[in-house]
């Protein structure tokens, strides 16, 4: 029996989300005495995966097609699932992972459980804790099927190394008759994305206007962080809506979330609550964010941010 993990990569380089599902999969495989099999596409740095305890890796060559193709990827994974007598398949919570998971589960007649935040509490039947109501609660969900696809929440398990030896296998890239085809990609250059970031720096209406966002960007840059914003900030067009985080925006599950000039409305907090450590900088000591944060400074963003950025810069030198 086997556990299968989808190892995500970009331009041939394995993403952190890929290593996190490998770590999580290794733990389950050890608990259950199962084999851990990875499935990836065009991975160049395969040796990294030996550090995360994969027993086998199917590294599928897509013949120069570099776009994520949900139809072909899910077909490939589903035929490996059939071949390997699988009980659990794990994908990440990235945009691609969450796209792939439900489609794959329908193809292989599996239960699908998303937003999973812990190792299963029991097996046969499998039962696991997931977050729901946009992080306002958790539930324990039991699979009613022999096969289960899990989508693991970002940063909920972390990276755990376990040295092993790995066999690399090949498989032909699946064909697709779907009319849906990717034609091009607009990548926001070299910026860290909210989903991949360990640290997120977020600005709210307290920043007063788009012309002041260099403060947020400079701070994010010294921290190697992604930038985010509250909903009104993107609604007013100060920032692109891809930065909008919260219940109706992107979810954030970073290690550190720094909120500046954000009041901490319930809809904002819901989407960022699963971040490990939250810092708030706000001029109003009554702002609701102080109730949700771990650390806080009551102060004027325009004075505090430049100082913080300078100090962090000096510390790096």
């Amino acid at each position: 029996m086997a556990v299968i993990v989808y190892i995500e990569s970009q331009d041939g380089v394995i993403k952190k989300a890929g290593l996190e599902v490998a770590s999580y999969g290794r733990s389950i495989a050890d608990d259950q005495g199962l084999k851990l099999i990875g499935v990836g596409f065009n991975i160049k740095d395969i040796q990294v995966l030996e550090l995360y305890g994969l027993d086998q890796l199917y590294n599928i060559d897509t013949q120069g097609d570099s776009y994520f193709d949900v139809e072909r990827y899910s077909s490939n994974i589903s035929s490996i699932v059939d071949k390997e007598n699988t009980s659990i398949v794990i994908v990440s919570a990235s945009a691609d992972g969450r796209y792939l998971g439900p489609i794959l589960s329908a193809k292989i007649d599996a239960a699908y459980i998303s937003n999973v935040v812990e190792l299963p509490s029991k097996y046969e039947p499998l039962s696991v804790k997931r977050s729901c109501f946009t992080n306002k609660a958790f539930n324990e969900t039991q699979s009613e099927k022999k096969l289960t696809v899990i989508s693991l929440s970002s940063n909920s398990f972390g990276l755990k190394e376990k040295l092993g030896t790995m066999e690399v296998l090949n498989e032909t890239y699946a064909v697709s008759s779907s009319s849906l085809k990717v034609s091009s990609l607009d990548k926001a250059s070299d910026k860290v994305s909210i989903a991949d970031a360990d640290i997120v720096v977020s600005g709210g209406r307290g920043l007063k206007g788009p012309e002041n966002w260099h403060l947020i960007e400079d701070l994010a840059e010294v921290l190697g962080a992604a930038t985010a914003c509250s909903k009104p900030v993107s609604d007013m067009g100060w920032r692109s809506h891809s930065e909008h985080v919260g219940q109706t925006g992107k979810p954030v599950a970073s290690n550190l979330y720094i909120a500046i000039g954000v009041s901490g409305a319930i809809q904002h907090l819901a989407g960022i609550n699963s971040s490990k450590v939250k810092v708030v900088i706000n001029s109003d000591p009554e702002a609701p964010f102080f109730k949700a944060a771990d650390y806080g400074i009551v102060g004027d963003a325009f004075e505090v941010i430049p100082k913080l950025t300078e100090k962090l810069k000096a510390r790096k030198l």
Binding site: F68, S179, L180, S183, D186, K187
Partner: peptide
Amino acid sequence: QREIDGGKENLTASLPI
């Protein structure tokens, strides 16, 4: 268009979808 982590993807398809 699909929003992806850190960008957008442009796609074509035909109905139904």
